[in-house]
Design a binder for these strands. Structure first.
Lengths: 197, 197
DNA sequence: CCTCTGTGTGTCACTCGGTGTCGACTTCGG
DNA sequence: CCGAAGTCGACACCGAGTGACACACAGAGG
């Protein structure tokens, strides 16, 4: 188990695991689209992928994660991205840039977002992940060199940014997925720009 | 069952039902404080109140509702309050006033809020209820006489107001429940005031 | 070749949240 | 007094998620 006992430098184990995860997520999405989230059991998904229910839970902690798994991995990157921005950039502009990058990485199809938006259990799980990220973002903002942000201010900034992201996503859905996501996000950020005392 | 077939004008059935609900919620909170939310089963709560698990679910749709039941009833009032405000009041100021009223109605103790904030399942459920309310608020804003708000703008306003409320609540928790909730809310609202194009 | 070990898997049994159903009991109205 | 409606307990059931155990299949080393 000395890290390179197997195949490639990248770790063969990790790659196959990733592949199985992706396959599982894809098959799950097909079933969810066909029959709806609540009407699809974990056993259905597992059987469709040729494995047992137990094994499904070795790849995803919850049923919701089969949909949200990829989405919230982006959240972890956001924190790194913040640290990578120039230190003298105003916090709000920093958040806008970072979230634009994040949006571009998202290649989530409209109906995946629609599924999330229309399924209470998925919306709840999504919000949960987002909440964790928000807390991380707030501390990341305060940790920037030269930052004088109070906890309240940092929290408010991170929360407002999340609000902008949410409202933009919903507007995008309202347009049937035709509008420019980045433009909507800019509009929301421009409208909200906080005035910190 | 013509509304006054029973006892008082208020309906005896409703009153007893409300009383049982309140008792149940109170006993649930005690157990949650003692052992934590996840470590307390619905059966524990039901037995503590001298009833069966089945009957618990005749009073609360979910376990979470035993904690959140009262909190989110306030959400329904918010929509009515919006319609009661003067029609020429700017939307953001309208939201601020309405949410201040709502805050005053909340007499939730600090540790109840802390329980919600520290329990993922409760936070998720809380957000879920809030989401529903947010949608209602957005349409209520657009329905105000003389309103020219686009759906996107109304959504953004409602979402931003929710963000202000959240950030203020967390700051209040950070101060250990000593700060002035209304003042924190005003600060958050002042910082965010949206500039609609 | 054989064994040891790590990893992935299936199976089984279990807990717990939540629902459907049925039968007993009460309360109220006619 | 009879019937409608509401409440409740008991029981069976479903699905998400977990823990335990056994098994299979690598690769490593003797």
């Amino acid at each position: 188990m000395s890290e390179d006992t197997l195949g490639g430098v990248d770790g063969l184990r990790d790659r196959t695991r990733r592949a199985v995860r992706a396959d599982l997520a894809e098959r799950a999405m097909v079933l969810f689209r066909e029959r709806g989230f609540d009407e699809t059991t974990v056993d259905d998904i597992a059987r469709a992928a040729g494995m047992s229910k137990r094994s499904f839970f070795r790849y995803f902690a919850t049923k919701e994660d089969a949909v949200l798994g990829l989405v919230d991995e982006l959240g972890e990157r956001v924190v790194e991205d913040i640290r990578a921005r120039p230190a003298d950039e105003p916090p709000w502009e920093c958040l806008r840039q970072v979230l634009r990058q994040s949006e571009e990485r998202i290649r989530t199809s409209a109906d995946a977002l629609r599924l999330i938006e229309s399924t209470p259990a998925l919306r709840a799980a999504h919000h949960g992940k987002r909440d964790q990220t928000r807390a991380l973002i707030a501390t990341a903002l305060r940790d920037r060199p030269g930052s004088t942000l109070a906890p309240f201010a940092a929290d408010l900034l991170a929360t407002a940014a999340g609000a902008a992201l949410d409202a933009a996503a919903r507007e995008w859905l309202r347009t049937g997925g035709t509008a420019d996501r980045a433009h909507l996000l800019d509009q929301a950020f421009a409208a909200l720009r906080p005035k910190l005392a």
